[in-house]
Design a protein around this nucleic acid. Structure first.
Lengths: 249, 249
DNA sequence: AAATTTCATGCAAAATGGCGCAAAATGTGT
DNA sequence: ACACATTTTGCGCCATTTTGCATGAAATTT
């Protein structure tokens, strides 16, 4: 990957998210942070972005905020997806479900990852289109407006004909005895189908979802193999899940 | 392998990937890197690409030149979709295909329009999610990265089970005798399926697509019922299409 | 205040670019 | 068919660019 291409990518990231972090860029682009820093310096001199501690932001956006962390308020989700990244290897078949945490996962995937990804959410699909080595398959069907994801019969039908190595589940509620729950019936059914077609099920859940119960049951707790939260694995509130036989990351 | 042939190949690679590396070209073309360098130098002097360290990039891709003629094209697209709007009524079943013009159409749809819309493009689906009265159905399948739309067997299968009142076709090339053509085979097949399942087919085409021919045939010209361009309906360059029995808007 | 993270600088290794030259290929006129 | 000019190509040599690492300073967090 040459310099110009990298810088082009940085500009695009900036257009999309108004902010970039040096570390994340270096992970995505597989170069050292020094190189990223040099890129940012050059682009800053050309006036194409504004450097800030830890990264850069779109120069037009900068007047409103002056710290990256204001923009990165969702840092617990970033923590989660960083950990989840370790579960992904080249040539996997991956299902990525809806939810903002899963969207963060898609954004942080290395640019050169080779994989086949099935997703029912529009934004995840859009982000993955930027990855040249990933085969993206959109699970089609009636769209749920709020969450911008496809749900219902069409998705379930499609899923029934396939199999994935790993499934990253968005989580509205996860409870040690009740299991996984959702607040929409069709969404619950869709998730259940995803679980059924995956060798491994990973639940990405910010801590506020732990112990929460939603109206519609997705599946029992033993279907979840791995739980990833922003807490350290030995955190006390994860005790019950560990006892339920779930691997904690 | 002749020089011209090589340089042609480089241009094509550039069109496909927007970037090329000298080493890879020298391997693919079985010549020394020096030769490639000389080719790139010549092409750069002719303005057909932009040389960068380690290879070259598509010159249009990098700078604002691109965005400038986007702005120019944008105004004609807005003209087109304004006219196309008159074709839409409440409670219709609508297919919206890919392309930037169709995206403009989606953006301009009245917020209170009641309709069922099928689309295979991610951005159109996202825009339509903001419309509370529109049932949006995403046509799923393997995604074509550049155009961010679902193409291929899955889409065709899904279409075969439905029927729409009207279909807004993105247009890469439309020619009075050759018909509608596309630059991707699967995209062509997908469009053909859309046409087959719609009572009325509308081609939204900025003038530069008129008379253009792409490698893959979608369907014959008599499948198009209505043609919408930025020109006034009596414009001379639309004469041939009117004679072909197409209604001009 | 201490610990961690990020930044700047210098440096060396690796990759890439540029130039001249000679061999090979191609074109041209007789 | 032959000699000669022109173009194209590959190689060697060296300059330049790029990159990663080490070190210490600066900024930020705990």
């Amino acid at each position: 990957m040459q310099k110009e291409e990298r810088q082009q990518f940085i500009i695009e990231e900036l257009r999309a998210y108004n902010k970039v972090k040096s570390i994340e860029l270096s992970e995505k682009l597989k170069v050292s942070e020094d190189t990223i820093r040099r890129d940012l310096k050059e682009l800053a001199e050309k006036g194409q972005l504004k450097k800030v501690h830890g990264g850069a932001m779109s120069s037009s956006f900068s007047s409103f905020h002056n710290s990256l962390d204001n923009i990165y308020a969702h840092s617990s989700k970033v923590k989660i997806v960083r950990k989840a990244l370790s579960l992904i290897e080249d040539n996997m078949v991956i299902i990525i479900d809806g939810g903002t945490t899963n969207l963060e996962l898609a954004k942080i995937l290395p640019l050169d990852l080779k994989a086949t990804v099935f997703t029912n959410t529009l934004q995840v699909a859009l982000v993955l289109c930027e990855h040249p080595e990933i085969d993206v398959c959109m699970l089609g069907g009636k769209l749920h407006k709020g969450s911008k994801l496809a749900i219902g019969l069409d998705v379930v039908n499609y899923l029934s004909e396939m199999h994935a190595d790993i499934c990253f589940m968005g989580t509205s509620g996860i409870h040690t005895t009740i299991g996984i729950t959702e607040n929409d019936r069709e969404e619950a059914i869709t998730k259940r189908a995803m679980i059924a077609r995956s060798s491994r099920v990973v639940s990405l859940a910010i801590s506020e979802k732990l112990g929460k119960i939603q109206p519609f049951k997705v599946d029992s707790i033993d279907k979840v193999h791995i739980l990833v939260t922003e807490f350290a694995p030995n955190h006390h509130s994860l005790e019950a899940f560990r006892n339920a036989g779930i691997k904690i990351l």
